[in-house]
């Protein structure tokens, strides 16, 4: 398949989470409408051995193509890209993905900040950043950058989070656009992109 004939995604939803976020992702994915023409990038902190397992679990929940992000691959609508463990994922100006094994950020690799910041640079107002449950402050700086460049920031309601620290930090540091209960997230994202 030649890369230059593929139409890359014009809009991206980037989802970041840590402890307690996998259940939320499993529940929100089936709600996302593949026909809306966006791509999803998921950054979850986790141990390295679980890479293929995670892809398999999420793949059964949705009609989207769920795959581990590969370096220099184009971002295609209808695809869910999982950031591989032990690498940061960045988004290039030409809508391709790059992997990076540089220093951990917020004790994390992948870091949510790294992916959100770089996706914001490329997608600007066409980025929707979603931050979920977690025990770490990763993601807040990425939300800040998303906001500065005109994107939309959604944070899981800390009251509905298994570990509230991560969403709380983002809410404290950034004027986020929406705070949404875990149960409502899939529908909320979908409605937002349908009308946007």
């Amino acid at each position: 398949m030649a890369e230059n004939v593929l139409i890359t995604a014009k809009r991206v939803v980037a989802i970041g989470g840590s402890a307690g976020s996998l259940d939320v992702i499993i529940r929100l994915l089936p709600g996302l409408d593949k026909q809306l023409g966006y791509a999803v990038i998921i950054v979850i902190h986790r141990r390295s051995q679980q890479d293929s397992l995670l892809g398999n679990i999420l793949g059964t929940k949705t009609d989207w193509v769920v795959k581990e992000a590969e370096e220099k691959e184009p971002v295609i609508p209808g695809y869910v890209y999982l950031v591989p463990s032990d690498y940061h994922l960045l988004v290039e100006k030409d809508h391709t993905l790059s992997l990076d094994d540089s220093e951990k950020v917020n004790y994390s690799r992948p870091s949510i900040d790294v992916t959100f910041e770089s996706a914001a640079e490329t997608y600007r107002e066409n980025l929707t950043a979603v931050l979920l449950s977690g025990a770490n402050a990763d993601g807040a700086a990425g939300m800040q950058r998303t906001k500065e460049l005109g994107g939309i920031c959604i944070v899981q309601n800390p009251l509905s989070a298994e570990v509230s620290y991560m969403p709380e930090q983002a809410i404290r540091q950034v004027a986020v656009d929406h705070i949404v209960d875990a149960e409502q997230l899939g529908k909320f994202i979908n409605d937002l992109l349908k009308n946007g």
Binding site: L90, E92, K93, S98, D100, S102, V114, E117, E121
Partner: peptide
């Protein structure tokens, strides 16, 4: 060099 990573560095 890949631009996104270079910018970060």
């Amino acid at each position: 060099y890949s631009e996104a990573s270079m910018k970060r560095r």
